[in-house]
Amino acid sequence: MRRWAVGLSIAGAVALALVGILTAVLAPNQRGDLAREVAESLRCPSCVGESVADSSAPVAAAMRAVIDEQLEEGRSAGEIRAWFAERYGTEVLLDPSPLAGGWLLWLVPAVIIAAAVILIVTRRHRGRRWIPLAVTAAALAGVIAAWAVTSAAEPSGSHSPTTAEGAAPAVGVLRDAVESDSGDPQLQLALARALDDAGLLAEAEQHYAAASRLRPLDTDIAYLHATVLVRDGRPVDAVPALERILAIEPEHTPALLLLGTILWEGGVQGGEELLERFMELEPEHPAATEVRELLTEGRT
């Protein structure tokens, strides 16, 4: 009975292991993408002991861009590594190729292992000379074959060009966060900007307004609030926000320009005055010529 149970559990475990390992072997490689694997095998030239994949140095970022570019052109990992080795010297390879002067680095471990095997086997089989030789040869062949196989097997990960994710997932996260803590101006502002990016202007406006109420003295938020109202087709509603900005900071030129334009177009008094003040402060502004035309047009 017990033997029977043991046998069954062994068979079950072995079957489970086989099925599991087989599915894992057949599953697509998930060990990162190819670009990262190539970057991990290159040394960042301006850092100490960091790979291109991990370094935040500008040169590493540039090299990552080159890797992406070349992968998209269809080059193999080996070709890209060779390309970098040619430009930056073999020093850039963290896994020196046996062909490019790095042979010593592969020979030494092989010799160390061979020496150990010879030593152990000769001590075990004194007298029979062919055994140590045969075992050593077999062990060495095994080591070399293993290295050859691993170096021949190019990193086989997939390469998907880094796509810029949209703001869509951000909206959900931020909405939840704002719901649980609506008094946080930073969260309100972040949600407003995410909604703004997603084109949901009306909703964005509400959260800009909320952020602005929580931080009444922050002119940047107020200005964002005003611009979203203008883009949403409600320029008149933007007037109070812009007036508040100018009350806090009378020389806030973007607010001068925007409020001046709104008032001018609405035919309301005071618009011209604001635009003239803008011209005085920012004569070189790209919008200045347009404003000048607008003003002269109005006078004639």
């Binding site: 095998s41 040394r43 020093e91 963290l94 002067g101 680095l105 080591v143 290295w147 170096s151």
Partner: peptide, 17 residues
């Protein structure tokens, strides 16, 4: 005078067995 780097990939491959 040759400059060589020995990094994680080399150690991983020589030490894994």
């Amino acid at each position: 005078g040759d400059r060589l780097s020995v990094g994680p990939p080399w150690y991983e491959r020589t030490l894994a067995p």
